[in-house]
Design a protein around this nucleic acid. Structure first.
Lengths: 157, 157
DNA sequence: TATTGTTATACTCTATAACTATA
DNA sequence: TATAGTTATAGAGTATAACAATA
């Protein structure tokens, strides 16, 4: 048995996702927690045949924004060409619909389907479970405090 | 001027690094803060001709662990083959030395040079500045609280 | 026989440019 | 002329396998 098992397509970011904090740097802590949360979520989403990017896509649509592909590209910080592949895949699975925006026939509006909403809800529950598990050692107040602190330092969109 | 300017080699993770939080998910906040911090740090490190992975490498050595390449691979969650390229590059710049571990001649120990320590110190200051800037809206107590909360939910190594 | 480091290669994902349709 | 979307392709980064040296 290898001491360094690897899943296929495991995400190893270009930047460091260090396995241990060094010095007193906020970023070491932040990166490590982010890594744990991300991999935990990805693992759970696999069972639903979704990755984080696909989930986020559904989330933004469900959120009521009915974004165009261009808007989604900005929200996900993706190149528009990647959004094509992303949304086509979800559309093929009948999780969303890509329709022409009548007020600007160049644009495609993304809207959720019943099946898409159902899968999103399932995924959201699974993700919440991972989040709660990660912060299990915190009191509810501290969990809220963490989220609040992160919220306060969010750079303006 | 493009509405969607892109730096070359800008990191766009496989997973979502969403530009806006959705719902009440911890991960949206965490990812966004992580993204802001990471890109901010990478920008500063560019001036020193370092990326985060290289900085982390120096950091682990300076931390006094004198790790072998194998150990560094685990710390950075990298494949050993990638560590070769990584450490060779830093060795060429005389920032570290790769020497044979006498107690196990297969292994290579990494140790910092004077020049490497100097550059590391510079980089650490620059990173600290980015971190402080990110949390500028927080009181010192809240900054500490955030770091402490993140520390408490770190998964065991 | 197992492990560390190394090299070479295949593969995945991203960046870029060119193109169509619409504004 | 500019913008949304699309397609094709080149490039960067990662995973995998094979190998040498040492244990």
């Amino acid at each position: 048995m290898s001491q360094h098992p690897k899943r296929k397509n495991q995400l190893t970011p270009l930047a460091a996702a260090t396995a241990a904090p060094v010095g007193d740097h906020l970023f070491f802590y932040l990166f490590q927690v982010e890594y744990a949360l991300r991999t935990g979520i990805e693992e759970r989403l696999q069972a639903l045949d979704l990755d984080l990017r696909q989930f986020s896509t559904l989330a933004f649509i469900v959120d009521g924004q009915a974004p165009t592909q261009h808007e989604l590209a900005q929200l996900l910080r993706l190149d528009p060409s990647q959004v094509v592949t992303l949304t086509k895949g979800l559309a093929e699975r009948q999780l969303l619909v890509r329709s022409i925006l009548e007020s600007d026939r160049r644009a495609k509006v993304l809207s959720i389907t019943v099946e898409g909403r159902r899968l999103y809800a399932q995924a959201a529950v699974a993700i919440r479970r991972v989040e709660d598990n990660l912060t299990a050692s915190l009191s509810r107040r501290d969990h809220t405090a963490l989220q609040s602190l992160l919220h306060r330092i969010l750079p303006p969109v």
